[in-house]
């Protein structure tokens, strides 16, 4: 029981990373109806930005709350800008092209970020500076690390912030309108292009946060680190119901827990197959995901 609780905790903290990445997928899918394959790589860039900022401000050697916040915010802002640039340069010119073209372009952007990353950051893994001291807390036999507390706390805060942004602000309302029906929203005077940019900025910032948080718990970062988590986070988004924001959070948590439980109780090599197994099952049985709505295709 105690071990199970421990696994559950590990799963939740791992899952909240997925959830943060999944939010970006789901938001972009909501407004543009396509899978931004490069999203996982934005998460990687987020981790590297944090690495360089942390070194620049010496956060590794002199940990402080202010330094940690600076690293997190810097990385988020950097990735938000990156996300907007990607959308402007690669996706916006293809707005009226077939979805397949956009999808292939997204794969291209993903490959570009990975390979440019290898060139700029170097192909070897780097050690992420531990700007939050690692301490272990024991609660009833369950070990809680300070990193896990930070991961869970920060992601909870970001998700609550996102929820408020989407549900309570005017921009959030416009975002919902665009994802409901882009053309109609545009006719209602909503600047759809700007909303799409904002969506990319917010989604990318969340991915960057995930990158920073993952660096804390798994301090080895490399330019290909975004590939698999990116794909899995997409699975999480589908699991929750693509285009659905609470769905992405729930999907991420479920996937994280499932992975940790499988590798803990069955086999760690199967860990990477779980996500895709879930994906296939969910797409065949309930393609709209746990919280998604169905729609009829018009002939």
């Amino acid at each position: 029981m105690q071990e199970f609780a421990q696994q559950l905790l590990n799963g939740l903290s791992w899952g909240s990373i997925y959830a943060l990445i999944a939010l970006g997928y789901t938001m972009v899918y909501g407004v543009l109806r396509f899978i931004n394959f490069a999203h996982g790589d934005v998460y990687m860039v987020g981790a590297f930005l944090a690495y360089y900022i942390a070194h620049a401000v010496g956060a590794g050697s002199h940990p402080s709350v202010a330094a940690a916040a600076l690293v997190l915010l810097g990385s988020m802002v950097g990735c938000a800008i990156l996300g907007v640039i990607i959308e402007r340069a690669a996706y916006r010119p293809l707005r009226r092209q077939p979805r397949l073209t956009v999808l292939i372009t997204a794969i291209g952007v993903s490959l570009l970020l990975e390979n440019a990353g290898q060139l700029v950051f170097g192909a070897d893994p780097k050690f992420f500076p531990q700007f939050i001291p690692g301490r272990n807390l024991s609660v009833g036999g369950v070990v809680v690390t300070s990193h896990q507390i930070v991961i869970l706390g920060v992601s909870l805060l970001l998700m609550a912030g996102l929820h408020t942004f989407v549900m309570k602000t005017k921009t959030g309302m416009a975002l919902r309108a665009v994802s409901f029906h882009r053309e109609a929203a545009s006719l209602m005077g909503i600047p759809t292009d700007r909303i799409i940019s904002i969506t990319f900025a917010v989604g990318s910032a969340l991915a960057a946060a995930a990158g920073v948080l993952v660096g804390l718990s798994n301090p080895k970062i490399d330019p290909l680190m975004g590939l698999l988590p990116g794909l899995k986070a997409f699975v999480a988004a589908v699991l929750g119901g693509i285009g659905n924001i609470p769905g992405a959070m729930i999907g991420g948590l479920i996937l994280g827990v499932a992975e940790v439980l499988v590798s803990g109780y069955i086999s760690s090599t199967l860990r990477d197959a779980i996500a895709f197994g879930i994906l296939i099952v969910i797409l065949l049985t309930r393609p709209t995901g746990l919280l998604g709505r169905g729609q009829v295709e018009k002939v």
Binding site: A90, I104, I107, G108, V109, S110, L111, L112, N115, L119
Partner: peptide
Amino acid sequence: VFYSALLI
């Protein structure tokens, strides 16, 4: 890098 840029 060249490859992926080519694709885009």
